[in-house]
Design a binder for these strands. Structure first.
Length: 104
DNA sequence: AAACTGACTTCTC
DNA sequence: GGAGAAGCCAGTT
C-alpha cells in the first residue's frame, strides 16, 4: 500500500476529540521519520470532510497549516470536538491520541 | 534522473 | 520556552 493511502487511512481512524502529531502518524504508517512527508500528503488532502486532517498537529501541539479554511477554522473544529487548547496550542498531555496499534 | 519543496522534528544557544 | 540551524522523507517539477 502506498504511503499516502496509509496516511489517509490512519487519519480517518483518529477518534473525535483526539489529535496526533505528524511524527506519530509517520511512525504508525510504517515510515518513522517521515513526518514531513505526512504533512505534504495532508496539504494535498483529497477529501477534507472524509479525512480529518485537522486532528493532526505538530509535535508540541502547535497547529500548522490547514487547507480547509485556515488555522482558525482548524482550532474551532478541534475545540468543538472537545480537544483541550492552551492558547493556540493543543494540550497534548490530555488530547493526544494513544492508539493501541502504536506499539512498535 | 536530479533538484527543489514543504501542514516536521530535534539539537543548541 | 523562543530563535536559529541541520537532518529526514516522500512528492512534484
Amino acid at each position: 500500500m502506498n504511503f499516502k493511502e496509509t496516511v489517509y487511512k490512519i487519519t480517518r481512524l483518529i477518534p473525535k476529540g483526539s489529535v496526533v502529531t505528524y511524527g506519530q502518524l509517520a511512525k504508525m504508517s510504517g515510515h518513522p521519520g517521515a513526518a514531513r512527508a505526512v504533512g505534504m500528503c495532508m496539504r494535498n488532502n483529497p477529501d477534507i470532510p472524509a479525512t480529518p486532517c485537522h486532528r493532526v498537529v505538530g509535535s508540541t501541539g502547535q497547529l500548522t497549516g490547514y487547507a480547509g479554511g485556515g488555522l482558525l477554522k482548524k482550532k474551532s473544529m478541534l475545540q468543538d470536538e472537545g480537544v483541550v487548547f492552551k492558547k493556540d496550542i493543543v494540550d497534548l498531555s490530555i488530547s493526544q491520541w494513544l492508539p493501541s496499534i502504536m506499539e512498535i
